[in-house]
Structures are given as C-alpha cells and as structure tokens.
C-alpha cells in the first residue's frame, strides 16, 4: 500500500522513478494554500512522506512554526514513516521555530538577522545532506507555515520575500525543492495581496484546499485544486489544472474525482 500512487501523486508528478519532473524535483516550488475551514496540512504530510520514501530516498528540511516535532512524528508514523529514525540518519532535519522570537524593539535589524540565521541553518542542513552518504539525493525544504513566519517577522513582507528568494535560489543551485504552506484567506482582495501574488508567481505547483461549496460532509472533507504551471514544450504552453475531492484519513488521504465515489 505504501508505494501505490494515488491521484495526488499523479497530479504532482510523483509517480515516476525518482519523481523526475514532478513536484519534488530540482528547482520546483510547491505552494499549498488553505483556509480556516479546511486545513491543507495533510498535503504537506503527504509530500514529506513521499520525499522520505524509499522510492525517492530524499532528505527533508522541515521549518516548523506551527507544531512541535511530536505532532508531526505521530502523524507521519500513522502514515507509515518514522521521522525519529530519519532524523537520526540525518535525512530529516527539523528546525524548531515554534518559540523563536525576533525582538523587534531592541534591535532594529533583528528580523533580518533572524531570517539570515534561519537561512544559514537551512544552508548548513543542505550541505550536510549533500556531503554525506546521500550525496545525490534530493532535498526538500518544507515551511509550515509561512503566515506564522510573517508574524515572526512582525509583518515585514519584504524580509519574508527576501528569505523566500534566497531559498528559491538555493533550489535552483542544488537539487532542492521548496514546499510552502500558506493560508489564502488572510489576504483579502481589497488590500494589495503582495505576498500571495508573489508566491503564486513563484510557485510551479499551486495546491488549493477549500471546503465544499455545499457545506461540511462527513465523507468528503473538501476539494483540492492542483494547478501545474506549464512550460514551453514545442512552443506550446500548457497549464494543467485538476480538481479533486478528498477525504483525509489517519493512514493517508483518499482523493477522487467529484462524483466518482460510490
């Protein structure tokens, strides 16, 4: 059961050997957008599981801002992936940012320094993983979640964007990908949604988790829209969007096309 790809894997291109060309290959940026009613955290868990699976044998750098390690450990264990062991083997780097504060009042550049520190932690982890036994393995950087990083940065969008650009530059230099969880509904349309539009522009995959229009149901938890931005292939530009309904379970997520479930 562990290796059978589901619709989410297909939509994200995680079916081939080594996930070539998919969401977890070099230089890819995946943006997961969710809202208060429907959490998109399960997509993150799924991607972490796939990135650490024996098929890909990759490394994950996890920037945690919303939950402690035990939370992810328990969830991923139910999904069939032991984070503690991966952590011991240096394949899972957990950066606990839960209690990190950048004291803005005391130092003027505290936010900048804090983010530089965070970036150097990521860089160090990337160096460790690319120099070790898994030198050719793919590295995924996961941020959960970006809106809290904004809070940590006291709302300084510029600093957060700078940090993201650094991370994205890293992904293009090394065999890295970047997975970001963010909340779509905190950026109302009236205000200039700078960060959100930047993110959507930067992302290769945009995954949106929304509640069903018809309300809450026990066996359909919401709908997922996966947008894969196209590339110019044979002078043809192709965008690919797919829409699914999903049900989150403890041992995985079940996706199906709307109306195909009996």
């Amino acid at each position: 059961m562990n290796h059978s790809p589901n619709l989410l894997d297909e939509a994200l291109g995680l079916t081939g050997r080594g996930f070539g060309g998919g969401a977890l290959s070099q230089g890819r940026v995946v943006l997961v957008d969710d809202c208060v009613e429907t959490s998109g955290a399960f997509v993150l868990h799924h991607l972490v599981k796939r990135a650490l699976s024996p098929d890909s044998g990759g490394t994950v750098i996890f920037i945690a801002l919303s939950h402690p390690f035990s939370h992810y450990d328990r969830i991923l264990r139910k999904l069939g992936c032991n984070l503690s062991i991966h952590r011991e083997h240096n394949r899972f780097h957990f950066v606990d940012m839960l209690k990190v504060e950048f004291p803005n009042e005391i130092q003027k550049n505290a936010v900048e320094h804090g983010l530089v520190d965070l970036y150097s932690k990521i860089l160090k982890a990337v160096e460790v993983s690319s120099s070790g036994d898994y030198s050719r393995a793919h590295i995924s950087t996961v941020i959960d979640d970006l809106s809290i990083l904004e809070i940590v940065a006291h709302g300084s969008v510029d600093h957060v964007l700078d940090f993201l650009h650094y991370c994205i530059t890293l992904t293009s230099e090394q065999d890295c990908s970047l997975v970001i969880l963010n909340h779509e509904d905190i950026y109302p349309e009236m205000e200039a949604p700078r960060l959100l539009s930047h993110l959507i522009y930067l992302a290769d995959f945009v995954i949106k988790a929304e509640p069903l229009v018809t309300g809450i149901a026990a066996d359909v938890h919401g709908q997922l829209t996966v947008l894969k931005k196209g590339t110019f292939n044979d002078s043809q530009y192709t965008d690919k969007a797919s829409n699914f309904h999903f049900q989150v379970k403890e041992n995985g997520v079940e996706l199906f096309f709307p109306g195909t479930r009996c």
Partner: peptide
Amino acid sequence: VHKVAQISSQVPVILEAS
C-alpha cells in the same frame, strides 16, 4: 463550532451539526 482541536492527527473532526 468552527474548528475542533486536533493535535497529533491530520483527520479533521466533522461534527454532525456545527
């Protein structure tokens, strides 16, 4: 009831009525 706490689980709690 908009949200019910779920620590250490990814399955959302769906109440029969909210």
